[in-house]
Design a protein around this nucleic acid. Structure first.
Lengths: 125, 125, 125, 125
DNA sequence: GTGGTCTAGACCACC
DNA sequence: GTGGTCTAGACCACT
C-alpha cells in the first residue's frame, strides 16, 4: 500500500506523507482505520524507524492522522476537506519557480497543462 | 534586478539561478551582456561571494552563461532554446508530488490551471 | 585507494574526481558500493570536507555517483558507458594544445603513441 | 599570423605562447627574426598588453625568444631542438589524466590514436 | 579587478 | 552519522 522510490530526490519521509495522503484520497485508508505501526512499516519498507516516525509526526501535526497512546495511529476524520489558506499559499510558492524553469526550457503552457492533467487524473478516486 | 528572499526555504544560490534565468527570459539581460561580478553582486545582496560563485558556476554548466577568467561573466547565446531530455525529466519529477499535494488539499484541476496560466503569462518577454 | 599529490598544479578536487573514476575503471569500486563519507575522506586526506564535497557533487552531476542525504554516496550504475558528445568535444579540446606542445619539444608521433599506449593499458580492468 | 580563440577555455597567454611556437615550427618565424612588439600585437589582437607581455616573458624564460633592450624581441636560435627532460616529464604529467578520462568515457585507444595523428599531422612543417 | 581554489567552522535537513 | 548550505577570509591565475 505504501511504496517508496529510493532513487527519488524527494526525501523518504515526504514520500511516506504523500503516500498516506494518497491512500486516504483513494479510499484505501478509511476514517478511523488503524495505520501500520512505525516499526512494522519500517521493517516492510526496509527503512529506519526514525524516518517513519518523522512522517507520522508531521501528519499528526497537520491533523491527518491521530495517535492514541498504547493503541496506535489512526486516520483522522475528513481532515483533508479543509485546507488552510496558509497551506494553499505555501503550495503556490512551490509552483512559481517550477513555472519559471519550464519557460526557460522552452516548455509551452500547453505541454505543462497536458502533463499536469495526466498527473492529476492519473490517480483518481 | 536580482532580488533574494532571505526567509525562503529555497537556497539562496537557487534563487539567484532562477532570478537570472527570469531576467534572460524577460529580456533584461541580453546575449553577451556582462553580468555583475561575483563580488559586486555579493555586496549588493549582502551575501558571501562564494554563494554567488556557486550560482554562476551552476549556470555555466547548464550553458546559460559563459565566464572568462579575469574578464567576468556573460550571458550565453540562445542557451535556453535547447533543453536536454534529462532536464525535462527532472522537471517533470518536480511537478508530480506537487500535483498530488494539491489534490489532497482539495484544489481542483481548474484552479491549478488558472494559477499556472497566470504564473506562466505573468512573466512574458 | 584515493591519493592526492598536494604539490600538483591540478586542483585537489579534480584529482579526487579522476582518482574515483580510475578506481571505478579498475574495479576497485563496484556499482552501488558506498564511497567513504565526505568527512571520513577529508580526514584521511587531511583536507577540508568542502573540497571533497565539491568533487562528489561534480561526479554526481556527471552521473558517476549517486548521493542520498543522510545515507552516503554510492557508485552509480554503468554511468560511464554513455559519454555525451559535449564530453567528447571537451576532451578533444584538451588534447589539441598538448599535441602542439609535444611537436614543439620535438617529440615524435611514435613516442607520443608509445607513452599513450602505456598509459592506456597501464590501468586495465 | 597569431590568432586567438577568445571562446576557448585555454588562457589567452598560453594560446599566444603556443601560437608563436607553432609559427617557429612552421618556419613562419625564422631564427633572429623580429617579433611584433608587445603593444603592436596587443592592438592587433585587441588584448591587454599585460597579457602579451606575460607570454613573451614566459617564452624568454624558456629560451625560445630573446629580448634585446631598445631593439625588440627576436626568435632564438634552434631553441626547440633541446627539450629539457623536466619539460618532457611535465608534458607527460599532462597526458596521464587525459588518458584516464578518455578511458572512463569509453573512448578506445584506436580512436585516441586516430585523433592524435590528425592533430599531429594537421599542422606539419 | 575578475573568477577559481581551498580552509575553517557554523547550522540545517535527512536517516 | 550523512550530505547540503552558507559565511568568512586567504591565496592564486588571468586580464
Amino acid at each position: 500500500m505504501i511504496t517508496i522510490d529510493k532513487t527519488s530526490v524527494q526525501p523518504f519521509y515526504e514520500q511516506i506523507i504523500l503516500s498516506i495522503k494518497r491512500n486516504i484520497l483513494l479510499g484505501i485508508y478509511e476514517t478511523d482505520e488503524k495505520l501500520p505501526s512505525v516499526r512494522e512499516l519500517a521493517s516492510n519498507l526496509m527503512m529506519n524507524p526514525n524516518t517513519i516516525a518523522k512522517a507520522y509526526k508531521s501528519l499528526e501535526q497537520e491533523g491527518v492522522i491521530v495517535t492514541k497512546k498504547g493503541l496506535g495511529t489512526f486516520v483522522g476524520a475528513l481532515s483533508h476537506e479543509k485546507p488552510l489558506s496558509t497551506q494553499i499559499d505555501g503550495w503556490k510558492n512551490k509552483l512559481a519557480p517550477i513555472i519559471t524553469e519550464a519557460k526557460f526550457y522552452g516548455i509551452t503552457l500547453e505541454e505543462i497543462m497536458k502533463w499536469m492533467k495526466e498527473a492529476y487524473e492519473g490517480e483518481s478516486k
